[in-house]
């Protein structure tokens, strides 16, 4: 062991004053900060690109893009109200079907499932999110739609006599708002159930035990103590699923029928904003047409942005409570 010279730091300091490690730290921090900045830059770039490209259409047509129904490329009329209507209705149908199922699965997985079933069922539900949109569409065209046309739609209309209501009337073509809603329900389900499961698992034991100690049954405990506690997180999960459904493109385009009409019947074909863009964008030749489609994209951007922001806020609120 050699003894250290008295000026041990002195000699080091000379060597290390402009040390590469200090430069290394600076380079490293600069590079990672740069990477982090890419995220906001991408969001801003996307927003700017779409709103700039949509501007001519908004300037010329104003809000008539979302309030009128006449979409006539040659005549220069671009009213996308049916697509907006279809986006909202198909997503609403999807949520009506998916929400009870997703919450049911989440409660099953967090409360009742035998432990050997928990992993595989959870994995299968998660896998629903991994299936590509275009595969859902393919399955929709060749399996779901024939089934709807031949069995489900006649049964709903005539078997259950729901044909008397405007929602289930009219001829059963197959491609329809109902088909889109069903496919979207399957696609939104894993998102809703994943978030719900997480927030349900996060409910403190004390909540459950307090209810059980009062003599509540297991089901009453869940209904009165667990679910209310997790409510805003579950709503956040539903909003996340809604965000997915609103922006979903391929599967919907393949099964909704792509007809720009507003109809009360779920049996009728419809259109969504995303499928309108998907169908027409590559064929749009004149500038106003491109701009109008960009305007539709801008509306979609704003709607999904708001829905997602609210969803994140709700989920964040629950996780913040948990962190305290």
């Amino acid at each position: 062991m050699t003894s250290l010279p008295l000026d041990w730091l002195q000699s080091d300091r000379r060597r290390l004053r402009v040390d590469q490690s200090a430069i290394g730290d600076r380079v490293y921090e600069f590079l990672t900060a740069l990477c982090a900045l890419v995220v906001p830059a991408l969001v801003v770039a996307i927003a700017v690109a779409i709103f700039a490209a949509a501007w001519p259409a908004f300037a010329r047509l104003g809000l008539s893009i979302v309030t009128t129904s006449d979409w006539d490329v040659r005549g220069g009329h671009f009213g996308a109200a049916p697509a907006l209507f279809g986006t909202l209705v198909s997503s609403a149908v999807a949520l009506i079907i998916a929400t009870p199922l997703a919450i049911g699965v989440a409660i099953f997985l967090s409360e009742f499932s035998p432990s050997w079933l928990r992993q595989p069922v959870g994995f299968l539900v998660d896998l629903l999110a991994a299936i590509p949109s275009v595969v859902y569409g393919l399955w929709g065209i060749f399996v779901l739609i024939p089934m709807l046309r031949q069995q489900v739609m006649p049964f709903l209309r005539d078997g259950l006599h729901l044909g008397a209501t405007p929602f289930f009337s009219g001829p059963a073509y197959g491609p329809s708002m109902l088909a889109a809603g069903l496919i979207l329900a399957v696609m939104a389900l894993p998102y809703i159930s994943a978030v719900s499961r997480e927030v349900l698992m996060a409910v403190p034991r004390s909540q459950r035990e307090a209810a059980l100690a009062l003599g509540a049954t297991r089901w009453e405990t869940i209904r009165d103590a667990v679910v209310p506690y997790a409510k805003s997180g579950i709503i956040g999960g539903i909003m996340l699923g809604l965000g997915r459904a609103l922006g979903e493109t391929m599967a919907v385009t393949m099964v909704i029928g792509n007809r720009p009409e507003i109809s009360a019947s779920l049996f009728a074909p419809g259109y969504t904003m995303a499928s309108l863009i998907a169908n027409e964008f590559s064929e749009a030749t004149n500038d106003l047409h491109v701009s109008a489609l960009m305007a539709v994209g801008a509306v979609l951007f704003v709607i999904t942005l708001i829905v997602n922001a609210v969803a994140r806020w709700l989920v964040w609120r629950v996780s913040r409570v948990r962190a305290r």
Partner: peptide
């Protein structure tokens, strides 16, 4: 960054497609 990466994650893929086109 955390908030906007959630926003970016939630954007419809077709919107990302048309801005890449632009």
């Amino acid at each position: 960054v955390r908030f906007l990466s959630d926003v970016l994650n939630g954007l419809p893929s077709i919107v990302i497609g048309i801005s890449a086109w632009e």
